[in-house]
Each structure stands twice: as C-alpha cells, then as structure tokens.
Design a protein around this nucleic acid. Structure first.
Lengths: 164, 164
DNA sequence: TATTGTTATACTCTATAACTATA
DNA sequence: TATAGTTATAGAGTATAACAATA
C-alpha cells in the first residue's frame, strides 16, 4: 500500500486484471477505431452509426423506420430524431406508401447517394488502416472471432439482435 | 429498386459493405459483449466502465482523480460525477493529502473491496464466455490483434491514450 | 387489438468553460 | 501561471410512456 501520493502519469497506471480481459480490450479497440473513423471523416454529424443508417437505407431502399429500428436494435422512438437529422441534411427522404398508410419508407436522395459514396471512401480507408494493423492474412479469422463473440453474447443475454 | 414495401424483418436486411467491415463488426461485438456483461451483473449502476474504475483504484491505491481521468482518456469534469456515485455507494473514499492540498486521492473502502471481488467473479465468468466463444487457443492471438488495432488507430488519430 | 411513427420526458455519459483553492 | 477538483451547462444517444392514425 505504500505508494507515492502524486505524479502518476497515464502510462504508469497498473491495469490489473483488465490488462488481459477480453471484454475490456474489445471496448478499448472499438473506442480507438471509433475515434479514428470520426477523425478521418471530420464531420461530427456523421458518426459511424449515422453512416451505418445511410448504408442500410441504401442497401434496402424503401425500408421502413420500424424495420430500421429492429435491424439496429433500437427503439423506433430513438430512430426518429436521428432520421430527422438525415432528412434535414437532405440525405434521406421519407415516402408514404399506399398499401399501408401508417408506414413511412426511407430512400436516399441523390445528395444522400453522393454523401454515401464520399463516406464510403473514408470507410474503405479506415478499413485498410485496421486491416494493415491486424495483417491481411488475419482479416477473415478476426471477423470470424468477432461473429462468434456476437453469437455467444447474444445467446447468453437473450437478445434478438443488436446490429448497428 | 423494385422491392416490396413492407414486411422486412430484422434478419432480412441487407448489410451491404458493413457486413465485411472491420470497424462495424468490432462495434457490434463490443455492444454484444457489453450487454452480456450488464445482463450478468444485473446492477444498472455498475456498468463495465464503473467496474473498470473500481479496478484501477484498487490496483493503484491513492490514485488522484486527475490521474484516473488521464488513464481513462476522460476529462476530469467527467470523472467527478461517476466518482460521486461510487462514493455515495460507499465503495470509494476520497482522502486529502498533506503534500498537495489540491489533490484528492482515491481508495477502495472495505465495502468497495467486497464489491470488487463480487464483480470480479462476474467479470471472470464473462471472460470465460468470450474465451469459449473464440476458442481457448485464440485468446492470446485475439488480444494481440486488438492491441494492434488500438496502436494503429491511436497513431492515426493522435490520441495519447483512451483506456477505460 | 396491434402496429407505425411522433412527441414529451428523463437518464446517462460526455465535454467546455468558469470558478476556487491551491501550487 | 499552472494544476486539482467542482459546478453549471449543453449536446448526444438512448429508453419509456402516451398518443394519433391506421391496420
């Protein structure tokens, strides 16, 4: 317990059991990756989650908000404000549908498509950074390990899904 | 573009380039792990970050708040309220120090030590879940890949550190 | 009755800036 | 001048509950 009272700099801290903990290190890596992506994109209004919403809408044109929420593991009430922003930015369009008048379908605008392409260039660069870090040959293996973690954790916690 | 207007269930959504993106899958895995840990612990006031603070204080008795903030990559103003909670729960104690009267050092109370041990039992179980998921033989390799990601991402974004 | 989407509201976590008390 | 810690305040992101419109 005898320990100096001051002068501890960040690097000197002992991490104890955290140092080897899988969950802890997973979080640290994810945060670092998040920051690197945000730094690369520069646009505070376009964090990874917003970008992921753009991708999902692009890949599933006519997706409804409820479907987007379910595939994102978020409440529909959480989707609304994020989507309002994307609409305000002119990237996403809501369209009513005749067959079910409760529903709003989602579509990328032309500007949304352009923004998607810009952001995807950044995302590809980001992915290359991570790939270089782990080594090309480890990519498939690494993705496999991550997906096994997702399966086991969801199985344990009983979550249908929590993508995005 | 021809696509049905409704009835998309979560599993049917196409993820496009996200499906193979390292950063995206890292985030999904981290969120799944986070939820599994929270589910296991049950206590909403003791998320992984709070637990990590307990570990750091335990492993570095007499740590100051500024040091804790630096090693956690958080502003000191963000540390204060979280620490207030831990103090209110009777897990952590602040102690003044003669040599520098600006400083508050941090110490686990007896109750904090007990809580640490309880939580660590959960954390060990959680770690086993993740380890079984990836396979024992992959543990060291996986941790190595994560740390390489951290190094590369921090190098790119120019962050001193962002642990915890 | 159930579902879609919005709104009101609240909670958590984070940061910046201003402050105090020291150094 | 600089640092430790607190406070006030604001901005994301999330959730629950209540609601209107529709199925």
């Amino acid at each position: 317990m005898a320990r100096r009272r001051t002068g501890n700099r960040a690097g000197e801290v002992r991490y104890g059991r955290l140092a080897g903990a899988l969950g802890f290190n997973l979080r640290i890596a994810q945060e670092a990756s998040f920051r690197a992506f945000a730094h690369r994109v520069g646009d505070a209004a376009m964090r990874p989650r917003r970008y992921a919403m753009l991708v999902l809408i692009r890949e599933n044109p006519g997706l409804t908000q409820a479907e987007l929420g379910r595939s994102a593991g978020r409440e529909k009430s959480s989707i609304t404000p994020a989507l309002n922003d994307l609409v305000k930015l002119g990237l996403v369009e809501r369209r009513a549908v005749a067959v079910d008048r409760r529903v709003q379908t989602l579509w990328l605008t032309r500007k949304g498509e352009q923004r998607y392409r810009e952001l995807t260039r950044h995302a590809v660069q980001h992915d290359r950074l991570l790939e270089r870090a782990i080594g090309r040959g480890n990519r498939v293996r690494f993705l496999g390990l991550l997906s096994r973690i997702v399966a086991a954790a969801q199985d344990y916690a009983g979550r249908e899904n929590n993508a995005i």
